[in-house]
Design a protein around this nucleic acid. Structure first.
Lengths: 142, 142
DNA sequence: TTTTATTAGTTGACGGGTCAACGATTCCGG
DNA sequence: CCGGAATCGTTGACCCGTCAACTAATAAAA
C-alpha cells in the first residue's frame, strides 16, 4: 500500500514547474511576452484606455505598466496621449502598426494553447478549468 | 448555445494567474521563498551535495544557485567547503541551524498546501496531478 | 478660496530568473 | 608530459515583477 501516493506536494511542485515552462515557451512560440500580449489584447478590445484601468484589468503593478508601455511605444505598437479632461491620466491605444501585429500574435497564441492542451478532450478541459478556478479561489483566501 | 465555453484561453490565463498568486502567498505563509525552500529540502535529503548537482536536481540556473547559496550562507543556514578530491566543486550542506529551521518550514509548507487543496478530495487530487503532468509533458514538446 | 487629501504616473531600488563571458581546475589525447 | 577540451563556479548585464518615494494634477473640505 501507499503504492503511488498522489501526494499533496506533487501538485504544488507541478504548478511550480509548469509556470517555469509556460512563459518562456509562450514567448518563443508567439514572439511576445505573455504580459505584453495581454496588454495589446486589452488595447485591442477597448481601443483606448487609461493606464490605471489597464493596470487594474490586468492586475499588474503600475511600474510594470509604465515600462512595458514604454517598450511597446518604442517599437511603435502603441500610442499615448494626455486626457484633455484630466491631465493626470494618459490614454493608451494601439497604433495601426500594433493592430497589424496583434492578429499574428493571436494566431500564434491560439496555436500555442492548442499544443498545450493536446490530448485534452472537451470534458477534461472543463474539469481542469474548474479545478484551477478552485485553486485560485483557495489562494485568494490566504 | 456557446453558453459557457470553457475556452482554451481560460485555462492559459488561469495558469498565469495561479502562478502570480502562489509564490508570494507561499512566501508569506512559510516564511521562505519556494526556491530557497527547495534548496534546503534537497540539502536535507542528501546531507552534502555539489552546486552543480543541486542545480540539475532543482532545474535552476547556476547563477541563481550561487546567489541563493550566498544568501543562505549569510543567514547561517548552510555551509560550503571545497571538495578536496576536485577543487572545482564546492560541497554544500545544512548547518545545525539550518536543520533546525527546515522543520518549521516544512510544517508551514504542509499547512500551506493543505489550504491550497481545500475542497479537493483524494480522487480529484489524483486527477489534477495527472492533468498537470500531461500539461508539463505537452510543454516540454514545444 | 485656500488648504488638504486623493489620484495617476514615473522612477529607483530590490529580489528572482535568464544568458554570456570569464577564471580556475581537471581530464584527455597526441 | 603537455596543450586543448570540458567542467564548475562566479560575475555582469538584462528582463520582469514588486514596493516605496516622489511629482503633478485634480477633488474635497474648511
Amino acid at each position: 500500500m501507499t503504492e503511488h501516493l498522489p501526494d499533496e506536494d506533487t501538485i504544488f511542485e507541478l504548478l511550480q514547474a509548469l509556470h517555469k515552462g509556460i512563459s518562456p515557451k509562450f514567448e518563443r512560440c508567439a514572439g511576445i511576452t505573455p504580459t505584453r500580449f495581454r496588454l495589446l489584447q486589452e488595447l485591442f478590445r477597448v481601443s483606448e484606455i487609461s493606464q490605471i484601468s489597464l493596470q487594474k484589468t490586468l492586475d499588474i503593478d503600475a511600474a510594470a505598466v509604465t515600462r512595458h508601455l514604454r517598450g511597446l511605444e518604442d517599437s511603435g505598437m502603441i500610442a499615448r496621449r494626455n486626457n484633455p479632461a484630466d491631465n493626470r491620466v494618459t490614454l493608451v491605444s494601439l497604433t495601426d502598426h500594433g493592430r497589424d501585429h496583434i492578429n499574428s500574435y493571436r494566431e500564434e497564441k491560439t496555436r500555442f494553447i492548442s499544443e498545450l492542451l493536446t490530448g485534452f478532450n472537451e470534458q477534461e478541459r472543463t474539469v481542469l478549468a474548474e479545478m484551477l478556478t478552485r485553486l485560485q479561489y483557495n489562494i485568494n483566501l490566504l
